[in-house]
Design a protein around this nucleic acid. Structure first.
Lengths: 262, 262
DNA sequence: CCCAGCTACTCGTCTATACGAGTTTGCCTG
DNA sequence: CAGGCAAACTCGTATAGACGAGTAGCTGGG
């Protein structure tokens, strides 16, 4: 019978028509929710759960995979299954593109990293000229070619988002925007120097499960969605001067917006 | 050997160190991405995949569960496994709380449903007076008791979000806000009639996997995250007059925001 | 002609077993 | 004492089989 080190897990209800692996998942989930297992704690091993519940190992693994899908636990090969630690989230304030930040030579990512007290890094920078996808072309007003700035952002060494900025080639070619390091204040500062005073941004937000390549790039645990953000920057003449396509680890972010009541 | 009705699936690479179930998942994913299987199409049955690849059924099921976790497919008991149809998404424009909409007697949800050409329903309405959680109390400036308005929203019969509005009790008690139907323009219209002219909203956005109760309430397929939105409404005196906690099916929404470049 | 019931097919649950691979521990050897 | 190695533990992958339950289509009886 139940002989688990911690007496936090109960018995199965054989009369229930709820599947055994769901009952086990329920009990583990409840124990986690109640704090019987804290963040980072190791759950009982598969073998221990097998013995505790008197079921086969595959059934136990099935239970654990349910919890993994919910993003509650992560398993580490050779070590065990652990309650997923919630990494500190970074707030994305809606003033992150404020001109005053640029004038202090800070890019949006730096501004936010500073606010969170983390060390920001940029990674796998790649700049190419290419033909835009249909969607990007439409958002930018139909340019034939664009400059694409690819990069990945890390906080304290952990990858948290990767993004691609697209700019009409006629606007960006030969400028500092096409350089690996666009200089203080980032490409928005350069755009304004080029006479494109920024007027407003539009942001579209989706959430979904990551594709395998995104799991790799962001080193995502199973059960962690991504936030997909597409931002379009408009200058005061109403021209779309940049589209930025960003994929963020959802467990690393809270997005904050201010809406005036008009 | 490969004898699948559609010749879209290849063979396994026994020399690869990639696990067999991942190879199978990769091939299915690629076939779906390439459109060999369209939205709503039935994948080959587990038995067919077992015969095609010459592996055991559990291995095939493992592959399919990977794709389910990615939100690519859904399985239906007794029918088969299908490429997940992407339901039409509803855009949440940032002007959805515009005063002009309220003055036309439209609530925010109605405005958006109209824009999408869908039929909106409200469901499981519940109104209670209660003690606020720590978080809600803080956001509202520390009231001892609040009015909580619970409801679920459906579009064309499909549940897409559920939300709870919290208002300081001293403000809402005895008003139309405490009624099941608060009248034209919703509770924001009533707040303004009570002299709380709305000044701005703050919204916080997170994305995560749903808890089991949320899966049930929103009838979510596996592999579909939720968007968790917390909105605070402030009046012109800077007082927080409402906090709305919303959980949305992520596959039903695109959130759109406009940011002025200040 | 319609419908009831059977059958074949689907996925869901569960068992028992085997081996592989990564991690940790501790003992044993030099 | 330090280092290395083996054992014991962890999860990962895969097999083969059994039965249950939901669905759909066919078939035969009314």
């Amino acid at each position: 019978m139940p002989v688990l080190p911690s007496g936090v897990l109960g018995a199965l209800d054989p009369t229930s028509d709820r599947a055994v692996f769901r009952q086990i998942a329920d009990q583990l989930r409840e124990a986690i929710d109640k704090g019987k297992f804290a963040e980072g704690d190791k759950l009982p091993s598969e073998t221990e759960l097998v013995e505790h519940y008197g079921v086969s190992r595959m059934t136990v693994r099935n239970s654990l995979s349910v919890l993994q899908g919910e993003g509650l636990v992560v398993s580490e090969h050779g070590k065990g299954v652990f309650v997923r630690p919630r990494p500190p989230v970074r707030r994305l304030a809606s003033d992150r593109f404020a001109r005053r930040h640029r004038e202090q030579g800070k890019s949006a990512f730096t501004v936010e990293a500073d606010a969170a007290g983390s060390h920001p890094t940029v990674d796998s920078l790649e700049i190419k000229e290419e033909r835009p996808s249909q969607d990007i072309a439409t958002r930018l007003g139909g340019p034939r070619r664009v400059l694409a700035r690819h990069r990945r952002y890390l906080l304290d060494g952990r990858p948290v988002e990767f993004a691609t900025s697209y700019l009409p080639l006629d606007l960006a070619r030969g400028t500092a925007i096409a350089e690996p390091n666009p200089g203080p204040g980032g490409i928005y500062a350069r755009l304004e120097e080029l006479g494109h005073r920024l007027d407003r941004f539009e942001e579209e937000i989706r959430a979904r499960m990551p594709a395998p390549s995104e799991v790799k790039t962001l080193q995502l645990a199973t059960g962690v969605p991504v936030i997909h953000l597409i931002r379009t920057a408009f200058d005061t003449e109403g021209r779309a001067v940049e589209v930025c396509d960003t994929v963020m680890a959802a467990d690393a972010y809270v997005l904050a917006y201010q809406l005036p009541a008009t």
